[in-house]
Design a protein around this nucleic acid. Structure first.
Lengths: 366, 366
DNA sequence: GCTCCTGCTGATAACGTTTTCAGCAGAGGT
DNA sequence: ACCTCTGCTGAAAACGTTATCAGCAGGAGC
């Protein structure tokens, strides 16, 4: 009944040893705990003899150093926080997978936070991760209206932004060349003979949306085409936005013959809108999307897409972060990766055989 | 140059205060640290006056208790480990999202591990999470050939399995009624008049694959149909498996007129195979899949699917785990959720108007 | 008026690491 | 023979919590 009486040794299942501590390992190896610690952290600092005894003892006891104790002592954990806007967007999960692969190799743990497209939740999540003592943060910024990351991402915390430029926050950054990516995608449609090419763009608070729109304009410019403003529709980068946007475009008196869609979810919405309306791809409307989709080949027709190296983006971000943790003072870096145009059926063939013959050099035409 | 000489107070940016400790809060509030701790852990145990002073001090100092210190002292952290086989499978990410939502509400953190369909990596990941001091583990078991979860999931750790029955491990479990789900899916095809219904099944080491196959057989049995063994093809639950399996089925001398596909990724592969071969859905082959897909409506035609409440599955698993952490001794539970048949175009209409008229009661026919 | 509770409070010992510091042995130089 | 230096080692102090224990005031009961 006394509160101290709970220590009955027999009550504990014998097979399930309590997690071994450094103390026990030290006893078994006949050394001090300092030596055990050193044997793990800096093997060269301890003599061969003792190191082997320690390793042996650690192995038989199934010793794993307590992360919590280490974190408390050192002040920073071996965990990296990752916050993304949408756990169900295949692009972001591919990025996370890339991050995970390098973190796992480096012995780090991944703490995942899902902002769920909600700015308040994004901040709260980051706060929680900070309390967990993360060694650094990788995040895809949500960039809310009054986007002030100043306080929550203050200097002692190392951060790497991914995909988008965070507003009011200067840090390492990994993106792709969105301008060039969009430009090649649109150029492809133009080279096939299309002249009325529409853009299904994204919200301008995201650098990706702005840059892809710029790429679209540039491609038109190179082809000496004057942009028709009504052919630019901006959605929210979500499936519904793509659906609505495509319907708006199809309702136009003078319909575009091709559409460039600025992100993956919107592309899916665009497909849905076209299928519902019975509009044939690419027969009636040719389609190119930004962001490849894992099952793009299961769509009908398979999607022609500007593909981002999503996993590599994640891996690069993780490398960048680990690198900065190692040397906090190094200059801020912005790594820009290249996109690839993956040509499948949705962009169609050249419109007219005649036009197709000189499609390669349309840009030089007056 | 001396190693101890690095403590220059001026070098630290003044605006960015070091994370406030319980000590500082205690000083500012003029109380002991014990009182501060109590004010947070058990507000009723401290007088109104002091509690307010503590809260005020904590607020102005932006105090957040150190998770690491708490973990070390208490022995278990406020983090839950989650290990899934494939970070890019939308079903699993939906589950994780459900988990995340209840964990976040309960003040827990989510440590994510990606097993990447690799059993060795699954075990390693779990070990890492354990070292992190997780309060519990939610996982979708990979069930390797010699599936011995015995050691790594030993009793002091609370575990909840999701989606599949883990081999050689008894723990709380959340699944759907796979038998009934598959049965209704197949019954739908039968009710439309199909008689040669094939199954694109999964690897039998997974309970889901076995149960869905059983549901398929039951549906045939109810309809008084004798199964044709060559109409059952088993894949690996991945896209490629669905593609290969569907090609094999289509190469059959007597082709099935309908196919039930046992998981989401295989369904996508099946679509690809059919599109490539120019086989019309549902004109030539009607399709029903297990697992809805977020963009099922963007497929052509939209997919008829046995939908699992993925987010709810995750949320239930998290509830179960938190509940067990609160009372470790309670009996093991197996929660079975229901599936819903979401009818879209891929299963087609009734084959012949005549047969369609009595489609509802085919099960009662002799 | 004494004792016995009851309600709050503070001092303090853990928790399991890492890191500093000092010590000690042996090698090498004078 | 003495000092110095170098390479390993152990003792011990932190890190920021939580939980135990004792103390102290004030009210109730005799």
């Amino acid at each position: 009944m006394t509160p101290a009486g709970k220590r009955a040794p027999a009550a504990r299942p014998a097979t399930t040893g309590r997690a071994a501590t450094i103390q026990k390992v030290a006893e078994r190896a006949g050394v001090s705990i300092a030596t055990v610690s050193r044997a793990f952290a800096d093997p060269a600092a301890v003599s061969d003899d003792l190191r082997q005894r320690v390793q042996e003892a650690a192995r038989t006891l199934h010793y794993r150093p307590s992360r919590a104790a280490r974190t408390l002592r050192v002040g920073t954990s071996q965990a990296i926080g990752v916050v993304i806007p949408d756990l169900q967007n295949p692009f972001f999960t591919a990025v996370v997978r890339g991050i995970d692969s390098v973190l796992q190799a480096a012995g780090f743990t991944l703490l995942l936070g899902n902002a769920d497209e909600n700015p308040a939740r994004e901040l709260r999540t980051i706060e929680t991760l900070k309390a967990e003592g993360i060694a650094g943060l990788i995040f895809v910024p949500l960039n809310p209206a009054r986007g002030t990351y100043q306080q929550v991402l203050a200097p002692p915390l190392h951060t790497v932004a991914v995909d988008r430029l965070p507003t009011n926050h200067h840090a390492d950054l990994v993106t792709v060349d969105n301008v060039m990516g969009a430009r090649t995608g649109v150029a492809r449609l133009l080279s096939l003979g299309h002249r009325d090419v529409a853009l299904l763009g994204g919200p301008s608070r995201h650098s990706t949306a702005r840059e892809r729109e710029l790429g679209y304009q540039q491609a038109l410019g190179v082809a000496r085409l004057t942009p028709r403003p009504e052919l630019v529709v901006r959605g929210d980068f979500r499936e519904e936005g793509g659906y609505d946007g495509m319907r708006a475009l199809m309702a136009l008196p003078r319909r575009p013959t091709a559409v460039f869609v600025a992100n993956n979810l919107m592309t899916l919405g665009a497909y849905r809108a076209l299928h519902e309306a019975g509009i044939r791809i690419p027969g009636d409307v040719a389609l190119v999307g930004f962001d490849d989709i894992p099952w793009a080949t299961s769509l009908n027709p398979p999607l022609t897409a500007v593909s981002q190296p999503a996993q590599e983006i994640g891996a690069t971000a993780a490398d960048l972060l680990l690198n900065r943790i190692a040397q906090p003072a190094r200059a801020v870096r912005h790594v820009i990766l290249e996109t690839t145009l993956v040509v499948r059926a949705s962009c169609g063939e050249a419109l007219r055989p005649a036009a197709g013959g000189r499609s390669g050099d349309h840009a030089s035409q007056k």
